[in-house]
Amino acid sequence: MSPPSTFVDETDLHALVDGELDPDHRRRVEDHLLLHPGDAALVEDWRRQNAALRAAFEPIALETPPLSLRTAATRAAAQSQGPIETGATHWGRPSGTPRPRRIEDLRVRQRRQAALISALLLVSGLALAGLAAFVFAGGRSEAPRAPAPTAFSQGYVSRAGLTYATYTVDAHPVEFDATRRDELADRLKTRVGFSRIPDLSAQDLRLLGGRIVPGVSGPAGFLIYERADGGRVGLYFERAVFAAAPPAPRGGFGVTAIEWRAADFAFVLVGPLPPDAMQAAAERAAALVTTPTP
């Protein structure tokens, strides 16, 4: 007659094998096994499994582990490396953990420096190219090959206006005064190529003198006439290398400028007189410069 074994199940058998039973429970399960050879065989089979596992792997525990393994925890704690990459395998190389990171950082830094240098070179090249293009384009825009008539007309007028503003208010407005008219004519003939000095006394304009001034494309002549009330009128002339000027007089800054062309020269009469008086003076001067000197 078998004793009751109501409380013994498979979990108890595993617990018996694994030493998880208290003494009373263990005795009860062992009694159960005595009466149930099938369960006893099962338990015996599991114990054989355990023995086979230990036989297969126990020699590993008996080996002396590599130094890197024996000192792994101590080294990590002593070197204060902080959290490490737990998935990495660093066996056989003590203190080798940070080195790949340093190399990688160095390479990243080198790549960044190379990229920065490339960007700087690119920007510098673009800046140089832009500067060269600007200089080249600027030089060509001032070249006399294909001038725009209005621009060059404005060039003569502007130069005449500048010359007038520079010299008529000066304490020594002329280089050669009226008493040295012949000397002035010779100098104008030599430098400018035109030596006819119109007499505008009919317009109440007395010749004060003249000088050689820088023109748009070469030396220019500048004659200064003075009215009785002190107002001064300038006649600017330069060998014209550009197209004809527009006939309309131009005004600004309190003066009037009238430009015309004669004998391959550009003439600009600049003065503060009323436009009618300026027009009359210009017509008179234009008539005189085209008349051969007796």
Partner: peptide
């Protein structure tokens, strides 16, 4: 039993991880 080198690497990484966490 097939990956002895990997298993040793795992052990070392685990020990280093525990050591670092102990220190921190």
């Amino acid at each position: 039993g097939a990956a002895a080198a990997v298993a040793d690497g795992l052990t070392q990484s685990a020990l280093q991880s525990v050591g670092a966490r102990l220190f921190a």
